[in-house]
Computed example of a mutant assay.
Amino acid sequence: MPVATLPPHRHAPSQPPTRPVGARRVVRRLLTLVAAVAVGAGLLVAPAHAAPSVDEIDAQIDKQWEQLEPTIEQYNKIRSQLKANQKKSDDIKKKMVPLELESALAMNRVGDIAARYYMQGPSQEIGALLVSTKPGTLGEQLVILDRLAQEQHKQIAGVLAVRDKYNRQKQKLDALIATQIKQRDELAAKKKQINAEIKRLTAMLPVTSIRPEGCPAIDGVVSSAARTAIKTACAQVGKWYEWGATGPNTFDCSGLTQYAYKAAGISLTHFTGAQWDEGRPVSRAEARPGDLVFFYSDLHHMGLYLGNGLMVHAPRTGKQIQVTKISYMPVAGFRRVT
């Protein structure tokens, strides 16, 4: 009889040895410490965002200024045109006063004749003319009366025509002035918006007031007017830029050149584009001290040339009038006003 075999004995699965509670706490603390070190190391290697340097902020302001200065010079253009057109309008008003008086007197004379004729019949003067001569001359008398009437009519019509001409001119000027006032206000709003950004950037710079280097000695053949303009402009070195200012304490770029040449008895418009047209062109090789030097294709910046590649100019908000090289901006050309 076969012997029954028993199934092999199965041992219960082995269990890991029980770890003491204290050991588990130590492990958790170690893991926490390692994680903290890892995070800290990551923070240490992460790039830090340093505050921009003074030079970087200055470069940002210069970039913003390239957008602002054309707006300022456009503002100066509109303002100078507005001033000229307001003067034209005032001149026309003065010219219209005697014309209006003359036309009113002429119309009164016509009214008086019509009223007398209506109330009294033909005037005594006309009646005397008709009866004081021989009957054969009646035709001549009628011709004379007709010519007198035509002459009076021509005089009245001429006065009214001139008055209407000036009225039409004044209406055009008034419409132009209204348009320019609107443009000026729009430009002022735009300039204010950009200037707010300039002010924000300027506020980040340290407050310093360093008197820039003065003008060099002027060599070569220079007119007396140019010497006066150079002397006047150089006396302003160290004063602050202010948009729209023409001195004597603050200036913008075209305001400085206008102020300098005004001292020499030469009148320039407070606008770079106008000063470009008010001078005669000279090449860079022919440029000499006292010439006006312009920058950028739209002529939105200018200075007074001193020779040897230097100029005196009013740079921008936050900077003082200074002497600097003309090469740091794209030169558009030179103009001579003496």
Rank of each mutant, 00 (worst) to 15 (best):
S223H: 08
Y166K: 13
E242K: 12
Q183F: 00
A128T: 13
A235Y: 01
L205A: 07
Q258F: 09
R147P: 00
A196L: 07
L205M: 06
D185N: 11
K190C: 04
L148A: 08
G244W: 03
P212E: 04
S254D: 03
K182F: 01
V131L: 05
T232V: 06
A161F: 06
A157N: 07
A115T: 14
I218E: 03
A128M: 12
L138Q: 07
T133E: 14
D164R: 11
A203N: 10
V162I: 06
A245F: 08
T202P: 02
S254L: 04
A245K: 05
T137A: 11
R116K: 10
N249Y: 10
K191V: 13
D174W: 12
Q120L: 07
R184D: 13
Q150I: 12
G255L: 04
Q155M: 05
V131Y: 05
W243F: 11
N195M: 09
A115S: 14
Q169P: 05
G244A: 14
D146Q: 15
T202R: 12
M204C: 00
R227F: 06
A188V: 02
T228G: 03
E242S: 10
K172D: 13
T208I: 08
A149D: 02
E140F: 02
L130T: 01
S123P: 05
Q155Y: 07
Q258H: 08
Q183R: 15
L176T: 14
I126K: 09
E213V: 08
G255K: 03
W240H: 07
A196T: 10
